[in-house]
Computed example of a mutant assay.
Amino acid sequence: MTRPPVFRFAPSPNGRLHLGHALSALLNHDLARERGGQFLLRIEDIDTTRCTPELEAGVLEDLRWLGIDWDAPPRRQSEHFDDYAAALSRLESEGLVYRAFLTRAEVRAAVAAREAETGAPFPRDPDGAPLYPGDRALLQPEEIAARDGSGAPFALRLRMELALERLAHPLVWREEDDDGATREIVADPSGWGDVVLARKDTPTSYHLAVTLDDALQGITHVVRGADLFEATSVHRLLQELLGLPAPVYRHHRLITGPDGRKLSKSHGATALAALRAQGATPEGIRAMVGMTAERLS
């Protein structure tokens, strides 16, 4: 018997929802209802400083106003730090995680020096950030030991090269298009280098949390913005390393502003609450994000 599909929407309550969130939430909700599946809500509130109960309440209010309902109580990441710690501990026990002590300033300086010396750009990940050069490239062993012993801040990073050596088969994922057809995508997590899985004062990173949450919530279809397409390679690698199932992925178009950049809270995207105050309706929001009664135009 085929299992009913499970979709999710996973906002961070560090601001009010905007049109980009509306597209993703409506698309996931509509697909779940059309296919006779479940729609779940996850509150990604790892950042307990910026994410507040008041902002979470605003997110829930926006979703209800759009006509979106969910089939189980929301999963809040802040209530599941033990789950992430257990997954991290498993990777550590297999020698796949290390403490990295270089500060952002030290990495920036090293990258600038390398580029000035070679005249060539330093390797960067798909988001444009320089790959982590490794402590041993810049620090003497005694300095690494001193920082470790002094309680200095650190990041817990994945040993990417070693992790890839552990794979027993090529890494791929299934990508669904707007018509529901799927194709196989070859994953290439090596382009991200030694990604951060947690920090000294932060029990998990986005990559680790989202991968584990999708598995623990039984998500079968991850529908999210195209800006996360490349990150799927990292998530597939973590799924393999942790023995987790791989959902079907679908990366939808982004809603962009007048400057062509994707909408974001940090760049002042107009909130749904403000649009509502100006007289917008849920049907009007659907039209604004290019969705019709038949779902997606």
Rank of each mutant, 00 (worst) to 15 (best):
P170D: 11
N14D: 15
G284T: 11
L41G: 08
D125N: 11
A187K: 01
D62E: 09
K262T: 12
A293V: 13
G284W: 04
F7L: 10
F122W: 15
D69A: 15
W70S: 09
L158I: 11
R64V: 12
G134T: 14
F7K: 02
R236F: 00
S24V: 14
D214Y: 03
L19T: 05
L139A: 04
M160Y: 00
L244H: 08
H207K: 05
L91P: 02
L96P: 03
A72M: 06
R157F: 01
M1W: 05
G218S: 07
G268Y: 06
R250P: 05
A168W: 01
E230H: 11
R35D: 06
L60I: 05
D227N: 11
E54H: 09
T292D: 14
V59E: 03
L55R: 13
G180F: 01
P141H: 07
A198P: 13
L66E: 01
K200D: 11
D188Y: 01
A277D: 15
R250I: 11
E230K: 14
D71Y: 03
H267E: 12
E161T: 15
T232K: 02
A231S: 13
E34L: 14
V59D: 04
L19N: 07
R236T: 07
R90Q: 14
V289T: 03
R250S: 14
A155M: 13
L139Q: 05
H267G: 02
R90M: 06
R42C: 07
H207Q: 15
E56I: 08
I43C: 01
H21M: 01
G290S: 04
K200N: 09
L167C: 12
L17G: 04
L263D: 06
I185H: 11
E117C: 06
P133R: 03
R90A: 14
V172K: 06
P247M: 01
W192S: 07
L131E: 00
E106N: 05
A22D: 06
R124K: 13
A274S: 15
R276Q: 12
R75E: 08
V196H: 08
E92I: 02
L272T: 09
G20Q: 01
A72V: 10
F9L: 11
S264Y: 01
G218D: 07
S205M: 10
R124Q: 09
G58H: 05
G36S: 07
R76W: 08
R253W: 00
P153A: 08
V210R: 01
D148G: 13
D69I: 09
I68N: 05
P13A: 10
L131Q: 08
Q217D: 13
A163I: 08
A116T: 12
S297F: 05
R286G: 12
A113N: 03
P130M: 03
I144R: 02
A280S: 04
L156E: 12
S24E: 13
A22V: 04
A274C: 04
E283N: 08
F9W: 04
G193A: 10
E142S: 14
A155R: 14
F9I: 12
I144K: 02
R236D: 09
L60T: 02
P282E: 08
L162R: 15
G15R: 00
D227F: 04
H252S: 12
T2W: 00
A145N: 07
S297K: 10
D179F: 03
R3H: 07
N28K: 07
R8I: 12
H80I: 05
I144D: 03
W173M: 10
V234L: 09
S266L: 09
A113E: 14
D194K: 09
